[in-house]
Simulated assay, not measured.
Amino acid sequence: MPGDRVLAGIALRLLAIFFLSTMSALVKLAESRGATLFETMFWRQACALPVVLAFVARGPGGLGSLRTTRLRGHLARSMVGVVGMVFTFGAVLLLPLAEATTFQFTVPIFATILGALVLRERTGIQRWSAVLVGFAGVLVVVQPGSNDVPVGGAIVGLLAALFVALVAILLRQLRDEPSGTTVFWFSTLTLPLIAIPYAFHLKAHDLLTWANLAAIGIVGGMGQLALTGAAKMAPVSSVVPMDYSGLIWATLYGWLLFGMLPTPMTWVGAPIIIASGLFIVWREQRLGKQQTATAAPED
């Protein structure tokens, strides 16, 4: 039943956010054990590949579904995605987990801006107002001039959200490709690029650190597959609100692993950013229904 698929999509999205929040905590933990940014990025992609291949092999068409005629599109998505990964992992390393997660909630805000500027989508005063409210929430979290949240880390966190929104736009052009195929080409095309700087940062580690690096890739790959699966099962407006559960996991991991809790102003600013994002998602859903009703043929 359609309702069952929506519930399954919501459950998958919650699982995906748990996996990706766990990956962020493992990235920060690996850095505390001496791993560098490019090491974590390389093993994130390398160890995700077996997970993705196993997923694809069990699906329709098996490994043959990896063949594609959209290599240029996958290449563009991968180039933007790898830059976004630098900023995403960089934000996790520069900021407490809760604050790094909070800046990810600005993705709908950037998606609105990019939709208007790049795709020439019509954006009304209500959505622009939501964008302004969202950035007001960012200012509440950052508190320019205070030392609670580094401004440099906040900028990296916002750039990470911007590139996630850019990837979402590029993925629209690949929506006819199976999700496993898209994830496979992202890992495969970016590995050689990441391997170049990684070659200059080769380091010896103990067994626990290597296990940590491997876990980043395995958990990250599972999270990415769950994320794409949720998008296929349920409307975006139904599953996106589940993303805010990431703040719970980030707070828990930050406290358990690093003895850090969100700043008081993060608790004030995060709901403002979340409310802005939810309004944008609700507004897009409402406009989509109106357009469908307008386009429907008369009886």
Rank of each mutant, 00 (worst) to 15 (best):
V164W: 15
L139C: 14
L166Q: 14
A136K: 12
H201R: 13
N147W: 11
V141T: 11
T209G: 03
Q143T: 06
N212E: 11
T181M: 12
L139E: 13
F135L: 06
A161W: 04
S187H: 15
V183M: 09
P144H: 04
V142M: 08
V142W: 14
F200S: 12
W210Q: 00
V141C: 08
A160S: 14
L170G: 07
L139G: 12
G152S: 12
V149G: 02
L174D: 02
P192S: 05
Q173N: 12
L162G: 13
Q173L: 14
V164F: 15
F186P: 02
Y198V: 13
L170D: 07
P192T: 02
L193F: 05
A154C: 01
D176M: 10
F163G: 03
L162Q: 11
G145S: 07
V183S: 08
F163C: 10
P192Y: 01
T182Q: 13
S179I: 06
V138I: 05
I155D: 08
A199K: 08
V156L: 05
A214W: 02
F200R: 09
I196M: 08
V141Y: 04
V164T: 15
S187L: 14
V138H: 05
P150S: 02
T182F: 13
T188K: 08
V142C: 06
A204F: 00
G145W: 03
W210F: 01
T182G: 13
V183E: 04
A168I: 08
N212D: 11
L191R: 01
T190R: 07
I155H: 05
L170W: 00
V183N: 06
G152H: 12
I196D: 09
W210N: 01
L193D: 06
T209Y: 01
P150T: 00
V138F: 07
A211Y: 10
G137N: 03
A168V: 08
G137M: 05
A161R: 06
F186L: 14
L170R: 01
I196W: 05
L162Y: 07
F186W: 11
P150D: 00
A154M: 00
T182S: 14
L158A: 11
A154S: 00
V140H: 07
I196C: 06
N147V: 11
L208G: 03
N212P: 09
L159S: 14
P144R: 02
W185Q: 08
V156S: 02
A211V: 09
I155P: 03
V164I: 15
A204D: 15
V151A: 13
F163W: 10
L162S: 14
L171T: 09
S187F: 15
T188R: 09
D206R: 01
N147R: 15
Q143S: 04
V156W: 00
D206V: 02
A165R: 12
I196V: 13
V138Y: 04
A154Y: 00
F184Y: 03
V167W: 14
L158I: 10
S179R: 08
K203T: 13
V141Q: 07
P144Q: 06
G145R: 04
R175P: 06
H201D: 15
